[in-house]
C-alpha cells in the first residue's frame, strides 16, 4: 500500500492503494468517479480513456503508483463552471449514444483530438478515434458530432 497524490479534475486526491493498481480502478473504486468505464482491461476498447497531463491514455493499463504528482482529467472534469464541453452538448443534440457505455471514452478521445486539431478531417477523426470501440455501432454519429463540435468551438473563437 502506498499513498499516491494525484490531481484529478483540479483536485488533489491521496489514493491509498497498491502501486500496481491500474488508474481505472483507483478512479472508479477508490475515488468513486464511475464515468470512466471498464471494457476490456487490455487497452483495446478505449472505454477507460482519460487525459493524463492533457493527453488521452487508457487508464486500465496505467499503474496508479506511476502517477504521483501528475494531473488526470476524467469525463466528470470535462465540463466546467461555464457548462458542458461543446462535444458533450453536441453528443446530446445529435443523440449519439445508444447504450452509451462507450461514450465517455469516445468523448475524452475526441476532446484530446480537438485540443490539438481544431479542424479535423474524417481521416483525422478516424485515426484519433480508432482506439475507441463502440459495440452499438454509433460511429457515423460520432464522426458527425466531432465535426459539429469543432465548428462550434471555432465559431466561439477559441
Amino acid at each position: 500500500m502506498a499513498a499516491i497524490k494525484v490531481n484529478i479534475n483540479d483536485k488533489t486526491h491521496t489514493i491509498e492503494a497498491s502501486e500496481d493498481m491500474p488508474l481505472l480502478w483507483a478512479i472508479r473504486d477508490i475515488v468513486g468517479l464511475t464515468g470512466t468505464k471498464f471494457g476490456c482491461g487490455i487497452g483495446q476498447c478505449g472505454a477507460c480513456t482519460v487525459h493524463l497531463n492533457g493527453k488521452p491514455v487508457r487508464s486500465c493499463l496505467l499503474p496508479v503508483g506511476a502517477l504521483d504528482g501528475q494531473s488526470v482529467t476524467t469525463i466528470e472534469g470535462l465540463a466546467d463552471a461555464a457548462g458542458l464541453h461543446p462535444l458533450q452538448q453536441t453528443w446530446i443534440d445529435q443523440d449519439v449514444a445508444q447504450c452509451g457505455y462507450c461514450q465517455t471514452g469516445q468523448i475524452m478521445s475526441a476532446a484530446a483530438l480537438l485540443a490539438e486539431n481544431s479542424k479535423p478531417s474524417d481521416a483525422d477523426i478516424d485515426a484519433a478515434m480508432a482506439g475507441n470501440y463502440c459495440r452499438c455501432g454509433t460511429y457515423i454519429r460520432i464522426r458527425q458530432a466531432v465535426h459539429t463540435a469543432a465548428l462550434a468551438i471555432n465559431a466561439a473563437g477559441k
Binding site: K37, F38, I92, D95, A97
Partner: peptide
C-alpha cells in the same frame, strides 16, 4: 419526430446509471 435519449445528459457527463457503477 427526433428526440435525444432521455438519459443523454447523464451519459455524456459520466453520470449514467449502469449496474457496474453501483456503489
Amino acid at each position: 419526430t427526433s428526440k435525444s435519449q432521455v438519459d443523454s445528459l447523464e451519459i455524456v457527463t459520466g453520470q449514467g446509471d449502469y449496474g457496474i457503477d453501483t456503489r
